[in-house]
Write a protein that binds this DNA or RNA. Structure first.
Lengths: 247, 247
DNA sequence: ACCTGAACACCGTTCAAGT
DNA sequence: ACCTGAACACCGTTCAAGT
């Protein structure tokens, strides 16, 4: 039965009945990370769910796990290349593109560490994205070293925020870290840490260091919007100063 | 010979001659990460360099690798608890504490992903740090939800920046990714990406997405300082507005 | 209390061989 | 061209047993 020829490909045997390609592998990998998290991801497990020998992943995708992760990042950030309405000001275009970035990562929160904490993934070089940001900044009047700094402020500050926001909790919390930590936060000493204690009900599990759930469970929308406002306003101010100080 | 009693501890046998404790294990782990990187870190390798059975690490440090990583993070960020000169304004105190944070992480750049992309590590809860930031923001006039957002803007934006800055390059770059990527950046098409191409010499390897080395090799000092300026200025402005709009 | 040794259930990656 | 199966050299974690 495996010796019959496949009508589409003309191949014989197992090779014909599998017909896997890179896109399917990458999509299956995303699904697996979405479900079990990055720490639990495994090449062998992926091969198992695809019903295939582990070696085929290496054949299709390249020699290392990092290659697969780079593909995963590329697929998830691909929509950053979508068009913008051209009548928007440079400020509005920047706002849109970084809101869009955050939205995309939020659809796959467990992939966030790949984008934020691995160079081969965050440098997967969505050139359209880079061009969009650089064009907006050039229009604002940035050039030379100040353009470089402005770009890094945007990516470092805003993508960095999203990375922190979605930092994953312990993989298998059988030891009850979340519960233990929650209790520890609730019982912070009023005399040693008066300001912290005073605002405990408002900040508990809702600020970055004293929390046991991440941005997938607790909203950081208003904090992100504030950072976005502050950065865009700050760049607007400095773009003007810069325009004045040059010739 | 192993049956002689140890004079200090009174223990007999191997137990007496080893005398390991948690601090030594954590320090050895930091050293190992500093040298080989986080991706190459291994509990068994750590046990090997300590000349000890793998099980002793679990005995001293807790049941999981994440527990050890949390200890590593705690040791590295411990100096955030150092005192400040009290005559500084809230702005200067915030500047100092985040410059200090960045400085500490830069001394162990390969540990950065632990602080930025793992909740159990970044939430190791240096309470003195949190208190310092909250006290400064309270003095500025922030309260309630705006206090929460201001705190998250600072940690998310600035610690997030440091995480992105120090995102590690591929572990074992035997396939020459760095070289390949560098060439790809150099040959970016002028017609498709005019703004990017125009500033290539200034941005190549020096902005976040189009780079093949991280902040341990290439300085992002001026970009970080700009972000710090923008955030502090933005918070100063909003603290005033907030003071006006309430009662 | 502190440590060893062995065991269990996995990994990532490579490679010859098959169709 | 695409896939299998087996092999190599590792892992993290647990547990009974030793001193």
């Amino acid at each position: 039965m495996t010796s019959k020829r496949d009508k589409k490909t003309g191949l014989r045997g197992r090779a014909a009945t599998v017909g896997l390609d890179k896109a399917q592998i990458v999509n299956a990998a995303i699904e697996q990370i979405d479900q079990r998290g990055l720490a639990a991801f495994s090449m062998r497990e992926l091969a198992r769910t695809l019903g295939v020998s582990p070696a085929v992943i290496y054949w299709h995708v390249g020699g290392r796990q990092e290659d697969l992760f780079a593909e995963v990042s590329a697929v998830i950030t691909a929509a950053l290349a979508d068009e913008f309405e051209p009548e928007q000001s440079w400020q509005e275009r920047l706002r849109s593109v970084f809101r869009r970035y955050r939205h995309l990562v939020h659809q796959h929160p467990k992939v966030a560490p790949l984008l934020g904490a691995q160079m081969k993934s965050n440098g997967v070089a969505n050139l359209v994205w880079v061009e969009t940001v650089l064009a907006a900044l050039a229009e604002a009047g940035f050039a030379g070293e100040s353009l470089r700094d402005a770009f890094n402020v945007l990516i470092g500050g805003l993508s960095g925020f999203v990375t922190m926001e979605l930092a994953p909790p312990p993989a298998d919390d059988s030891s009850g870290w979340q519960q233990t930590f929650a209790e520890r936060v609730e019982s912070i000493d009023a005399e040693s840490f008066p300001h912290t204690h005073a605002v405990l009900p408002l900040i508990s599990n809702r600020i970055f260091v004293l929390r046991w759930q991440n941005g997938a469970d607790v909203s950081y929308d208003s904090s992100f919007e504030l950072l976005l406002d502050i950065i865009i306003d700050g760049l607007t101010l400095r773009a003007q100063q810069q325009g004045v100080s040059r010739r």
